[in-house]
Design a protein around this nucleic acid. Structure first.
Lengths: 100, 100
DNA sequence: TTGGTATATCGGGAAAAGTCGATATACATT
DNA sequence: AATGTATATCGACTTTTCCCGATATACCAA
């Protein structure tokens, strides 16, 4: 993953918020039936409700974050759950400390 | 400084390169008369030569980096020297590790 | 003061990102 | 099979970013 693409992914207020919300799903989202926040993450619809942007926009934002390895997705039935990608975030931290 | 603006400043290959070149000026730039790399940094013209983009573009890029507190400028005579802003970069590192 | 050099700012055209509504796809239920 | 729900993708429009050349500003030297 190109460093530029990672920083572009982070260059948007809503995407930064999403990343932050996903740090403490239970704090920011109402409970989800049949899906554990810690396990799979939060589904697109919940994130969309919270962000207040259109469904298509949020879906695209999540895939931008995913391409940057900042979140990862799990499909379960008709839902896609997103959670933080700790490896990718850790890698970014290393980039900042060594390559920047 | 808004986090988004910091990440925007980093969302460009040339700007990332500049930041990297400024880590080891002696390695990337020819010697400068009357100005110590460590002290004041590297002047705009040298950065422009190395980057191969227009003077106006580089001048703007440097001010974008400056607004994000990633570099700082010192004017000496007709030259403006830019160097890394260690405080700002350190602050970014903290943001990544705590707020992201 | 005139001219020369270094940098900054301005105005603009092309490319990319932000964002939407509409549509497609995938899955579940009846 | 038909309908309903969740998400992804598409097409379009607006705003922002990229990058340039031209011009302005600041400083220096003769």
């Amino acid at each position: 993953m190109d460093q530029v693409e990672i920083f572009k992914a982070l260059s948007n207020k809503t995407r930064l918020q999403i990343l932050n919300w996903l740090k403490s799903p239970a704090e920011y989202f109402p409970e989800q039936p049949n899906a554990d926040f810690e396990n799979v993450g939060v589904c697109v619809g919940q994130i969309q409700n919270k962000a207040g942007l259109s469904q298509s926009t949020i879906s695209e934002y999540l895939s931008i974050l995913q391409r940057a390895d900042l979140v990862c997705a799990t499909r379960v039935g008709q839902w896609t759950y997103y959670k933080r990608n700790h490896e990718g975030i850790e890698k970014l931290s290393k980039i900042i400390n060594t390559e920047l």
